[in-house]
Design a protein around this nucleic acid. Structure first.
Length: 801
DNA sequence: ATGTGACGAATTTTT
DNA sequence: TTCGTCACAT
């Protein structure tokens, strides 16, 4: 790999200029790279060279400003982004990038918490609970507290508690602030949940951030140490930070001169409020919108030149996003020219839509206009991928689906990992209870409850109680269960010895799969799914094997980096492996540039496959050809967002993300009818579709025009039904101006039993109604044409009789 | 203790 | 439709 170090004559440390670092940047980018002093906010529109700015800035700090790599902390949200940043900085400055702290918020916090475990009141071998573990624990807690688990589902509880932690509210504050029944219950659960986490020596994802913030706030001397150490903090995707992460950054950077004279570090954050699509997880664009207020003397630099897309695509994106209220105005522009029109398509059904997409991809490939790998198909929700897969398989069109159920979320993988986690941390009760009877070994609910009660009564950990049970020290346990428990404990001990004597992780894992009978159980099954499960376990063993191999030689002896002199966890250890897999949840994620793909069904190289994914997973990626599908109100924007201003704004940002992924060609399609949960459903055109200026779109197939329906629809129907997708460029600009389009119209009032006449499906009877306002739907029986569920939003070409 | 059938709910998800 | 949870039977 060529770096500035390697290139003869290109680099002379700390003396020469480095025109290379700035030469190919535009003015704004250059400003962002060279800015010195106060906090810097880089507002980076889609495709405006955000990563380039960040990496150049780091390189510039090292090369031109005499900053030591150990003084830099760069924070991202994903491991992928962290790896990419490290690589790209490496290309610019060489091996110095290896010892920089470039990491995700979460791994940075883990690193810090392990170092300061004692101060933070943690065992340094703490486990990390992910969402699934949290929910399991919450299920236990809710049961023990006798909650109505219908009303307080683990999902709800997890969401509420997560929100509280993201806002840095601890369980005591939550209790005192609670103002209604739900909040009081949540606070109660929260308290018990935290108690159990502590008992299990475990932290959940949100704790990683919150506990770090609390640590820094409670121990100024600790904070001071890190502030002295990190003089430059850079944050990527700043629009995705939640309050806790925001506070963490502020604690790290510092706001004023500390008592012992440490000045605040230089802060550089990069983000785009228009691409904030994770508010539902606590991200708040407040952090970016009020950056200037939060950090006085802050400077803002806007990157508005887009290097990715044609002007047509950008104009469409601008048209959509500009309807969001309270938005900092920003207009992306491109000098790549207008390019091709956006292609619109109105399909009869989702199958029809998929067939169109497949046919179009085929045509592009045949004409040589695009490789399969140039093409991405986006949808709002994962279940929409199915129909595409079906058609692609039928046509032999190579594709890959990104996302969905991830490798580390598969049941068998989690089971196997739970064994390892118990071996590493016997107090990890959630994992222990998970594997207690997996595979089935005759330790049922009753026995488990008996052990749990005993633990509670005697104030023992579950693990200790289990040992008591094995020794016959629990009275109300039948002998059979006792024997089974004893055997299980013996099994764990035997496996534990392997860990003790330092066997490789992969060997321990192999032993787990063998000795527990897990592998045999799957091998003997005739369920075809179990064959896949077996493959996944084999893959996990491979991952473990590779982990050991990469850990051994990569011992870079600290390289004078004081923070690395004592690794918190021994390299290659079981604990280190578990930490890795907890924090890297994307073994089978995106097209790895190097093609080093962990697991996939397909054999073909990435280069030859169409990519299918949700719009969320598409963030940060780009493709020459993009298909945005399911552009219907109720699908995208999602039904749940209709009528909710904040959620609608987020959907709009999501649409903006979708559109701005496209480089050359953008297709937008919708279906008049699609099957939702077994029932056919009819959705109107997505409002996002109608907001795109019609001159940018060439409709390959449009909605049936009002004329062809003949009849007079509901008032307003004739004009509005045609709203988008009015064919062949005939339609004038879309009406429905500003935010008050026809979508805000009152839905038709229908009750069960009402008779209606639909312009397309004829006479029908209302058999059910659901939802109200913008979410109102009616299921109508059209006799021979069957039943159809219609969204009543805006207008439907239908009259009530 | 475990297997079966009814029932109900059902976005998005960087860690 | 599909998946996971719950009640009940074996």
């Amino acid at each position: 790999m060529s770096t500035l170090f390697d290139r003869p004559g290109a680099y002379a440390p700390s003396t020469a200029d480095h025109p290379d670092l700035l030469a190919d940047l535009n003015d704004a980018q250059r400003d962002a790279v060279t800015h010195t002093g106060g906090p810097l906010l880089v507002v980076a529109g889609a495709g405006s060279g955000k990563t380039r700015v960040l990496t150049r800035r780091i390189a510039y700090l090292l090369a031109e400003r005499g900053v030591h790599q150990g003084q830099i902390m760069a924070i991202t949200f994903t491991n992928k982004a962290a790896a990419e940043m490290r690589d790209r900085v490496g290309e610019l400055v060489g091996v110095r990038s290896n010892t920089m702290w470039v990491s995700t918020f979460h791994s940075m916090c883990v690193r810090l918490l392990r170092r300061e475990a004692r101060t933070a009141g943690l065992g340094s071998n703490f486990s990390i609970y992910d969402a699934d573990d949290s929910k399991r624990l919450l299920t236990l807690v809710a049961r023990d507290l006798d909650l109505n688990t219908k009303r307080y589902t683990p999902r709800t509880l997890a969401g509420q508690i997560s929100n509280l932690k993201n806002e840095l509210v601890d369980h005591e504050d939550a209790a005192s602030k609670a103002s209604n029944e739900l909040e009081r219950k949540v606070a109660e659960v929260y308290a018990e949940y935290q108690r159990r986490l502590q008992l299990a020596n475990a932290l959940d994802f949100d704790d990683l951030i919150m506990r770090t913030v609390h640590l820094l706030q409670a121990f100024p001397e600790v904070t001071e140490y890190y502030r002295r150490r990190f003089r430059h903090v850079l944050v990527d995707e700043y629009q995705d930070t939640n309050h806790a992460q925001y506070t963490l950054v502020r604690e790290l950077v510092g706001t004023g001169t500390s008592p012992s004279g440490v000045e605040p570090a230089e802060l550089c954050v990069v983000g785009d409020a228009d691409q904030s699509i994770y508010a539902f997880r606590g991200a708040t664009i407040r952090n970016i919108e009020e950056f200037e207020r939060d950090f006085p003397q802050a400077r803002t630099i806007m990157l508005e030149q887009n290097y990715r897309s044609t002007q047509t695509i950008l104009s469409a994106a601008n048209a959509v996003i500009s309807r969001n209220p309270n938005r900092r105005d920003k207009r992306l522009w491109s000098d790549l020219g207008a390019g091709d029109s956006i292609v619109g398509y109105v399909a009869d059904s989702e199958h029809d839509e998929a067939a169109f997409v497949a046919g179009e991809i085929d045509a592009l490939a045949d004409s040589g206009e695009a490789d399969y790998s140039d093409v991405a198909v986006f949808y709002r929700t994962n279940n929409q991928s199915r129909v595409f897969e079906e058609i692609f398989i039928r046509l032999g069109l190579p594709y890959r689906v990104v996302g969905g159920v991830r490798f580390y979320e598969r049941r068998e993988v989690r089971d196997a990992l739970a064994y390892l986690r118990v071996l590493a941390n016997p107090e990890d009760t959630v994992s222990l209870r998970r594997i207690l009877n997996v595979p089935k070994r005759g330790i049922g609910e009753r026995a488990e409850a008996a052990v749990a009660h005993h633990a509670e009564r005697e104030r023992l950990s579950f693990s200790a109680a289990l040992r008591a049970a094995a020794d016959g020290r629990i009275a109300d346990l039948n002998p059979r269960a006792q024997r089974n428990i004893a055997a299980f404990v013996a099994l764990l001990d035997e496996l534990g010895e392997r860990v003790e004597r330092g066997d490789d992780v992969a060997d321990v894992l192999e032993a787990v799969l063998e000795r527990t009978g897990y592998r045999d159980g799957l091998a003997e099954s005739d369920d075809p799914q179990d064959a896949t499960r077996l493959d996944n376990l084999t893959e996990l063993v491979t991952v473990a094997r590779e982990f050991t191999e990469s850990a051994a030689p990569a011992e870079d002896a600290g390289a004078g980096d004081e923070l690395d002199e004592e690794p918190a966890l021994p390299a290659g250890s079981l604990a280190a492996f578990l930490e890795r897999v907890s924090l890297v949840a994307d073994a089978d994620s995106l097209p790895a540039p190097d093609g080093g793909d962990a697991e996939d069904t397909g054999q073909a190289a990435d280069s030859g496959m169409v990519t299918l994914m949700t719009v969320h997973t598409a963030k940060g990626l780009e493709y020459p050809v993009v298909f945005g599908t399911g552009m219907e109100d109720g699908i995208f924007p999602h039904m749940r967002a209709l009528g909710e201003e904040a959620e609608l704004a987020e959907e709009r940002r999501l649409a903006y993300v979708a559109v701005t992924r496209a480089q050359r060609r953008l297709y937008l399609s919708r279906a008049l009818t699609r099957t939702a949960w077994g029932q056919p459903m009819s959705n109107p055109a997505s409002r996002f579709l109608t907001e795109i200026p019609s001159e940018l779109v060439e409709w390959r197939r449009s909605a049936p025009s009002a004329d062809s329906f003949g009849g007079s629809g509901a008032p307003r129907a004739a004009t509005t039904w045609a709203g988008s997708g009015q064919g062949s460029g005939k339609a004038g600009p879309v009406r429905g101006t500003a935010s008050t389009g026809w979508k805000d119209a009152v839905p038709m009032k229908l009750d069960v039993g009402d008779r209606v006449s639909h312009d397309k499906y004829g006479l029908g009877t209302v058999v059910a109604t659901e939802g109200t306002g913008p979410r109102a739907t009616a299921t109508i029986d059209f006799g021979a044409s069957g039943q159809l569920k219609l969204m009543l939003i805006g207008s439907v070409p239908m009259t009530k009789l």
